Simulated assay, not measured.
Amino acid sequence: MKTGVVYVAAAIAEIAGCFAFWGWLRLGKPIWWAFPGLLSLAAFAYLLTLVESDAAGRAYATYGGIYIVASLVWLWIIESSRPDRWDIAGACVCLIGAAIILWGPRG
């Protein structure tokens, strides 16, 4: 349970941080948008260190699937653009891959 919460919190922090830079550089928002973005990205990096995993790369790979789903939720809620069936199918494939990486039996 803790791992799932950490992954979701990390995804929110990363997406918010990246969106702050997107707003500044692509949407013409003021430069001060970058500063909370930097704090959010630092929180994201810290949060991933809380994942219980024997290897950082495996934790990051698993996080990738969670990030993709969170990005589509962001697309829908924040950007008011509803994901289509291809977005949802792709996210499902990614979650299956993340689950295999996270819970696959290891010798």
Rank of each mutant, 00 (worst) to 15 (best):
A56K: 13
W86G: 11
A61E: 11
E79N: 13
G90D: 00
R58A: 05
I96C: 14
E79L: 15
Y7A: 04
C94F: 05
E52C: 14
A56S: 14
A45W: 08
A9N: 07
W24Q: 09
A34Q: 07
G90P: 00
Y60E: 05
D84G: 08
I31Q: 12
F44S: 07
I12T: 07
I77W: 14
E14S: 05
V51R: 05
I31A: 15
L25G: 10
G90N: 05
L48M: 13
L75R: 12
I101R: 02
A99S: 11
A56F: 14
A43Y: 06
L48P: 03
L95I: 09
V6N: 03
G64A: 15
R26D: 14
T49V: 13
L47C: 05
E52Y: 10
A70E: 02
G107S: 12
W74S: 03
W22G: 00
G57A: 10
T62E: 02
A70H: 04
G104M: 01
A43C: 13
P30K: 10
L38V: 11
T3Q: 15
D54P: 12
A59S: 08
V93G: 13
Y67K: 11
W24T: 08
I12V: 11
L48G: 01
I96H: 04
A91N: 02
A34C: 13
W103H: 13
K29Y: 14
P105Q: 08
D54H: 07
I77P: 06
G104L: 03
A16Q: 02
L39T: 11
R106E: 06
G97A: 03
R26F: 15
P83I: 11
L50E: 10
W33N: 10
A99Y: 07
T49D: 01
P83C: 11
L50D: 02
A59I: 04
T3P: 09
R106T: 06
A59F: 02
G4D: 13
R106V: 04
D84K: 05
R82H: 11
L27N: 12
P36L: 07
F21T: 00
C94V: 01
A91Y: 04
R85V: 15
A59N: 00
P105Y: 03
G17C: 03
G65R: 00
V93R: 09
Y7Q: 06
C92E: 04
P105N: 09
S40W: 03
G4E: 11
S80V: 07
L102K: 14
D84E: 12
D87R: 12
R58T: 00
D87S: 09
A43G: 10
A61T: 09
V8C: 08
L102V: 13
A89C: 11
W103K: 14
A16D: 00
S71A: 15
P83W: 08
L25N: 09
F21A: 12
W103T: 08
I88R: 10
